[in-house]
Every structure is written in C-alpha cells, then in structure tokens.
Amino acid sequence: MKPSSLIICRCEEVTIEQLEQAYQTGSCTSRQLKMKTRASMGACQGRVCRQLVDAWVHDKDPDSPHDAELLSYRPPIRPITFGQLAKGEL
C-alpha cells in the first residue's frame, strides 16, 4: 500500500489522499475537510480521528487556529435505540 492511501478515518475509510485532494480544492479547516470528505463524521463521531485531522491541518498550515468549535460534539453522543430515546424526553 502506498503511504498516500493511508486511511485516516476508519469509520468512513477516508484516506490521506482524499484529504489532500479536498485541501487542494479549497477545504482548509478541519470542519471543511469533514464536510467535504466525511472524515470524522462516521459512527465514532470523530473520537478516533479528530486529533489526526487536526494534526494534519496544522502540518499544512502551522498558523491555523486550534479552535474546538470547528469540530464540536452534538447529542446523542452515544448510540441509543429509538425506544430508549422515546423513554427519555430529550
């Protein structure tokens, strides 16, 4: 396997190559890359790869801000069934 086909996001099987293509076409922040490639948008909600995406963006542009709001968390933050959701009220 070529280094460029290294997977960064396991859930969505997004490779470094795909991040690079997205970056070249104007997706420059973690959030833009997520929207474009689905990296950190899968079943783990980015718990595994958001640090990697962040590190990758910083390697590209060391001056980019470390902004937690770029990749925020939204409920439900754990998998639940519709039944459990119906019993709760949220």
């Binding site: 997977i7 960064i8 396991r10 099987e13």
Partner: peptide, 9 residues
C-alpha cells in the same frame, strides 16, 4: 489518539 499505519484497520 491512534498512530495510523498502513493496514491499521
């Protein structure tokens, strides 16, 4: 934090 390596899935 993972340490991605080719074949890590």
């Amino acid at each position: 934090i993972p340490m991605p390596t080719c074949g890590w899935t």
